[in-house]
Design a protein around this nucleic acid. Structure first.
Lengths: 220, 220
DNA sequence: CGATCTCTTGAGATTCCTCAATCCATGTGG
DNA sequence: CCACATGGATTGAGGAATCTCAAGAGATCG
């Protein structure tokens, strides 16, 4: 894909911890591709409520939610050193009109955004605190592993608060869930460093199998 | 937009109550535009958990979440008599490549899907049961009003369970919230028929103003 | 090496869910 | 046309899960 884009104006940018690449309310002009590091996207209401919407990392795109209103819909901040490419959306549009492959790619990207978020929500709503935390850990494990890190040794780049915000839990609940799982021998937790000892147990926890199935209720 | 599409194969279809237009798992071939009536989209997990994801009505599109995997991501069912147009995605793609306006339109459509769902989640997470129900009612009121119905007299086409599923509450909690609001003189509830008496009070309830702000916590 | 942010742990309060009974509306078959 | 079956809605009581508040330990950064 990048070989196609390289023709477009591809601005590269390095980020340090805490640096923002986009802010809610900015006029939507470009999409951001993460090349290195982990970011954190979040939305906030006028009343001061904030919510983490994701932890994009290498290969992920940010900013597609701004297409609709022409306004950036969420903040994006680097959780550590990171590098991104800033892609003018106008050039993407042009490319899409010229190349069928490119067009497909953009649709798929946006489709993933929609489907992924929906499915994540669905999953979360059927899990309790422990399951939710297990779920995020697994996801992080997988995504980090796909990028060359160890699948069992995770160095969390985000705080408990961020983690909790993503899965709708307070930081205390996250902390407690972690210690419970550590006590059960599923994890080894040492502040930001988490080691997954029992991968299958973690997976089981993240699966709403034998659950009371809250929310939607069971159907015959 | 439809003048552009009319060139494409535009299959029209009438639906009766309970009829499905798409099922999770179908291969993704077309997008569905609602012309009349109200539908209900929902996703389900293998374990039997189900969750309502929306109540699309005239002018709304369904199925864009299938673009990513090439597989339909959610069920869509008519809640009453309804009419839809079935638009082959292939023709949309072609049109998009030919017309810049059309292209924009599709992006905006998908962007809305992303942004809207995110924002809805954000809102919900900072509201308690009553606020959530208030929020859905307001939304329904607005959307129905925009389509020519009364903004204060709503005839809910969905069950309490569906309503609750959308905002992550049990049907009992929805029912209780409604009776509480009725007792407070904000609504008049008579099974599926709801009349909004105090619109501003309802709006206030749907705003996380003086709330303990659970989940994300307060900043500064 | 102090200041600040983060994390852990505890106790209590709250909210919402679960279970259960009853009522109401709707539609069906005798 | 009515009795009845069925699905939806209301209401109550009790319990479970998570949040809130609070205090202190740990980490991190200048």
């Amino acid at each position: 894909m990048f070989d196609h884009i390289s023709a477009a104006v591809l601005q590269r940018r390095r980020l340090v911890r805490g640096e923002h690449v986009q802010r809610q309310g900015d006029t939507f002009k470009h999409v951001i591709a993460v090349c290195r590091g982990v970011l954190r996207t979040s939305m906030s209401t006028l009343e001061g409520g904030e919510q983490v919407t994701g932890f994009p990392m290498a290969g992920d795109f940010i900013g597609l939610d701004g297409v609709a209103h022409g306004t950036v819909g969420s903040d994006a901040m680097a959780l550590g050193e990171a590098e991104v490419r800033i892609i003018p959306f106008a050039s993407l549009e042009t490319l899409a009109r010229e190349s069928r492959v490119m067009q497909r790619h953009i649709y798929r990207l946006m489709g993933q955004e929609i489907e992924g978020k929906q499915r994540a929500q669905l999953q979360l709503n059927h899990l309790r605190a422990d399951g939710r935390v297990a779920s995020v850990l697994l996801q992080l494990s997988q995504r980090l592993a796909a990028r060359g890190h160890s699948p069992s040794d995770i160095d969390l780049p985000m705080t408990r608060k961020d983690l909790g915000s993503l899965v709708r839990l307070t930081l205390e609940s996250v902390s407690r869930a972690l210690t419970r799982m550590a006590a059960a021998g599923i994890l080894e937790v040492e502040s930001r460093r988490v080691r997954i000892l029992d991968h299958s147990a973690l997976t089981r926890m993240a699966t709403p199998a034998g659950m009371p199935l809250v929310g939607a209720g069971v159907l015959i």
